[in-house]
């Protein structure tokens, strides 16, 4: 018995050890020869990534994966989606199980600096909020002293929660679950008074309750949650492809290129748009992908605004306003550096 314990132990260590083997060949080459992009996504987060009955994935994060596949292969379907929990996601990227992570992941300094990972940019500006039972009669976060709070493990949410209650000299009791389904079930069964998570998810979670009208989202936003895609550190080319995929989506919106008017736009004489769509210059080639990657992205998922409206905005059940996620030209924070 003792011997077998040791064997199991060392076996596990060896697995971890092997998983952390040094970074090898360029990610782009690996992806191309595999013929597929492996993208880490959320298991089921309405608006961001969720599979439908036929197993087709959709959402804002999923669109990003598709855009990247379109930029590399000219085909948005060449993606393999790997659903990950909050706890699994960063390790999965470190170990090379996935090529890119697009799973509502908050860009924080320690994640960026100490995990051997790089954040590509921000594809959704979020903030943490509270979902509360209406029957408690609570109107603001500051009235939550002494509450039990359901929260998901492995998230920034867990830390912000502690900070918020401490800075406001309030006490709380956290009940920490592994998945958002369990977290919601804890809230639903009254184990907790409050459920906390990124605001964008609270509405989606609320809609899953048997009677959504019995719960309210408080107006408080207690943290900054810039969510964005992540890649491994040490492959600059791959990092650039990932980041210019995101910037291309933003620039497409700014230039007014949509999936519908792409045909006309390809004939335009506007030099900005020509560079963006690859009818002028060799910008894609500098990254090792096709020059028309901008056009491929527009064809596959449309511009950022289209993707936003379709998945989380007016065209979706979530009906989230653009707010901070509007282009900088419309008073938001979304800003794509110029392609030139």
């Amino acid at each position: 018995m003792k011997a077998s314990h040791l064997v199991v132990g060392f076996g596990a260590l060896a697995t971890v050890a092997m998983a952390a083997a040094p970074a090898s060949a360029a990610t782009l080459d690996t992806v191309k020869s595999r013929g597929q992009l492996v993208c880490g996504v959320n298991n089921s987060l309405p608006g961001f990534s969720a599979p439908d009955e036929k197993g087709q994935w959709s959402g804002l994060d999923v669109d990003y994966c598709k855009a990247m596949a379109a930029a590399i292969f000219g085909d948005p379907s060449k993606v393999k989606y790997v659903p990950l929990t909050a706890k699994e996601r960063l390790t999965a990227l470190q170990t090379g199980e996935i090529d890119v992570l697009a799973r509502n992941t908050t860009w924080t300094m320690s994640r960026d600096a100490s995990l051997g990972l790089n954040f590509v940019g921000v594809n959704y500006y979020d903030g943490q909020g509270f979902l509360v039972k209406k029957s408690l009669g609570v109107k603001a976060g500051k009235e939550l002293n002494g509450a039990s709070v359901c929260v998901q493990s492995g998230t920034t949410t867990e830390l912000n929660l502690a900070d918020y209650f401490r800075t406001h000299k309030m006490t709380y009791q956290s009940v920490v679950f592994d998945t958002s389904d369990q977290t919601l079930q804890g809230f639903e069964s009254d184990r907790c008074d409050v459920l906390t998570s990124d605001q964008s998810q609270l509405y989606g979670l609320r809609s899953k309750l048997p009677d959504p009208s019995k719960a309210v989202v408080l107006p408080d936003v207690i943290s900054k949650e810039p969510l964005g895609p992540v890649v491994r550190q040490g492959d600059e080319q791959w990092f650039d492809i990932a980041r210019w995929t995101l910037f291309a989506m933003l620039n497409l919106e700014e230039a007014g290129v949509t999936s519908k008017n792409l045909g006309e736009m390809l004939k335009t004489t506007n030099p900005d748009v020509k560079r963006l769509l690859g009818t002028d210059g060799e910008f894609g080639k500098q990254l090792g992908i096709t020059n028309d990657f901008g056009a491929q992205i527009a064809k596959a998922v449309g511009n950022y605004g289209e993707s936003f409206e379709r998945n989380v905005g007016e065209g979706s059940p979530l009906k989230i306003a653009r707010g901070l996620n509007a282009l900088w030209t419309n008073g938001g924070l979304m800003y794509g550096p110029p392609i030139r």
Binding site: G154, F177, D178
Partner: peptide, 28 residues
Amino acid sequence: TAIGYPDLVNVFMGTTLNQTGQAVEVVA
């Protein structure tokens, strides 16, 4: 960890591992 009882796996191999990212040390 499935029901949120704060045992070693939930607290240490769960939250602590995730906040520090030091998987090898924590798992060991």
